[in-house]
Design a protein around this nucleic acid. Structure first.
Lengths: 128, 128
DNA sequence: CAGTATCCATTCGGATACTG
DNA sequence: CAGTATCCGAATGGATACTG
């Protein structure tokens, strides 16, 4: 696995020590990694056309401000889901890729998508 | 499917109209249903011992305040994941069960749990 | 081009007190 | 027993302006 996959997520490890109101649910921890408002959309976008430049993501997701986009990307990088590669050119170019670890998320994301479609379907039938 | 499964989730349907900064990602919608801080824990607790009384949930989850517990349960009920049955006794008794729709969540939850375990495992190896 | 910095609005959940 | 009502603090993400 590539070097960039090394992960710094003390924010996940420290939670037992720092706060008494944390639950230790695995799923809750997953939500901390991919639960950000735009993260799954970003993961799907990067996965479907990899590597992906910052500007491409920005154009595809017009509703997201640049600052928010950067924050979400940085967190995904910190958690080892994507890696960021900056080229020392002018104008600058930055590319984002899914890490091997990030790719393991895809089946999970698909199962969540499938469940949502079954859910809305069931809901529609019941409410006419 | 049981009658109580009828779902009132206008909060999910209206989002396209009300806000311009919403994304239409299926996974994001799932998070709205089960992303609450204690929801997966509640779903697991109710699933593993069904039906479950309010007081049992409270005792098993000491870190959650009563008010928060009620809110999370109400939202799960509104979204058709659990159903609530109050018995007109004294002292009052209330039982919570997973709906059929709620039960379809279990494989999804398991896949999220599995991913988390693989993730932490991979992380531990990489960071020594 | 790909960011940072700063400030601000909203949302979520916790604390506490009261009740049919 | 199983709630409700009210208030409040922390965290999240959006708006806007500036930059190497």
């Amino acid at each position: 696995m590539e070097k960039n996959t090394i992960i710094n997520n003390e924010h996940l490890e420290n939670e037992k020590k720092t706060s008494s109101k944390e639950n230790n649910c695995a799923v809750t921890n997953v939500f901390k990694v991919i639960g950000g408002k735009w993260k799954v959309l970003l993961i799907n976008a990067i996965y479907s056309n990899c590597p992906k430049r910052f500007g491409e993501l920005r154009r595809e997701m017009e509703e997201v401000t640049q600052a928010t986009l950067t924050t979400q990307l940085r967190e995904l990088e910190r958690d080892g889901i994507i890696c960021r590669k900056a080229y020392a050119e002018s104008p600058p170019r930055v590319e984002y890729k899914l890490t091997d670890l990030g790719k393991t998320l895809m089946p999970v994301i698909r199962s969540l998508e499938d469940w949502w479609h079954a859910y809305t379907n069931c809901r529609d039938i019941h409410n006419e």
